[in-house]
Write a protein that binds this DNA or RNA. Structure first.
Lengths: 195, 195
DNA sequence: TCCCTTCTCCGAACACCGTTCGGAGTACGT
DNA sequence: ACGTACTCCGAACGGTGTTCGGAGAAGGGA
């Protein structure tokens, strides 16, 4: 609040003439971010690509604005921009001929996955940043600890993942995992259309 | 930190002789919570029910310990209890004959969904609590605003969800949505076993 | 036994936070 | 020119995690 007041060249206490609390500002900020990419485009007619784009957009918003993770996860935001994007998602789901309840559930599930994924992604980035390390150094720091875990003999599958998996070392690993998970969920949505 | 020191009947500053920072304590707390339910049971042989139980367990941990949401989402925890449960999940996935990379991806996706879902669930609970309202009162408070949104004519699908969906009013709605989402993801995992 | 060193413990302070209160100063109506 | 009303915001409140240095106990040597 103090920084914001300084930036606006007013006293800190003056802010409270315009908003009730910091949380209220966050609510406004969230809706502002939702409007950042402009209004939703008209539906393309391909529900799957529309929902994919929507998911990537939400993920992008969280990654661009780290404070979103701790705030947007809160009580649903009913600002105009947020509503516009919810409407966009529901419109895409329309083509699947789900019941209204199924649409709601599908929308919640999609959001839960995207949010959960982006939060982890962000946290990983920040952990590296905090330690001031890049990926490789991080591996080197963890190495000896992993060796000791391996020697313990418990957790053999975990060690296999650490030693043998390619995904963790790929530059686009987050992209791969996100896209795969998204496809899992979308795959499960489509057969329900032809019931 | 002050409260913890008081509870332990030591001075606040003394805590820093045992831990480096509050975050370090959180790391220890997370692993403690992971051990709360005792060690993982032996795999049942039914990967699907094992993974379902695992997901419910993670969700339960977050709901029981609200601070988990803001902490456990952070850098992966490599404490013994956390590792034991990761190993449990990977063991269940073993039956699907996935590649090691596919197993890792599946595990990440499951975690992302569970985390994202539990965080939203928690935030909703806390928003109601903060306002000191129950579900019904909340609906009454929001009512007039919803009416104005309806009159605006935009967001027709959103309004349909608000007016016609049954799920939001069901007592077990969180359970329903969570289970459905989980099934979507698990459904997508199984066909990959018979490749 | 006495003194000096070493180490543990922690009170007090630091820099920060969101929020509240009441007084200073301006603007306006009479 | 005066009195009222209103805006603005400095200063303070109670809170946070963390640091520093001094008080006091413990241990060792003479």
């Amino acid at each position: 609040m103090r920084k914001m007041a300084t930036a606006l060249e007013v006293g800190t206490a003056s802010l409270y003439g315009y908003v009730g609390s910091k949380d209220e500002i966050y609510d406004l900020m969230v809706d502002w971010v939702e409007g950042e990419d402009g209004p939703p485009p008209p539906p393309s007619g391909d529900w799957r690509s529309d929902l994919t784009a929507l998911a990537h957009r939400i993920r992008g918003s969280i990654l661009r604005h780290p404070w979103m993770a701790g705030v947007a996860a809160g009580r649903p935001n009913f600002g105009p921009n947020s509503l516009a994007w919810v409407e966009y998602g529901l419109t895409a789901l329309d083509d699947l001929e789900l019941t209204i309840d199924e649409m709601l559930v599908a929308s919640e599930i999609l959001q839960a996955f995207v949010r959960g994924f982006a939060i982890r992604e962000l946290a990983e980035q920040q952990a590296l940043q905090r330690a001031g390390l890049d990926d490789q150094e991080w591996g080197r720091v963890l190495g000896p600890y992993m060796d000791s875990i391996e020697k313990s003999g418990r957790y053999p599958r975990f060690i296999r993942v650490v030693r043998e998996a390619h995904v963790p070392h790929a530059a686009d690993r987050q992209e791969v995992i996100f896209t795969t998970g998204l496809d899992y969920i979308l795959d499960s949505l489509s057969p329900r259309a032809s019931r």
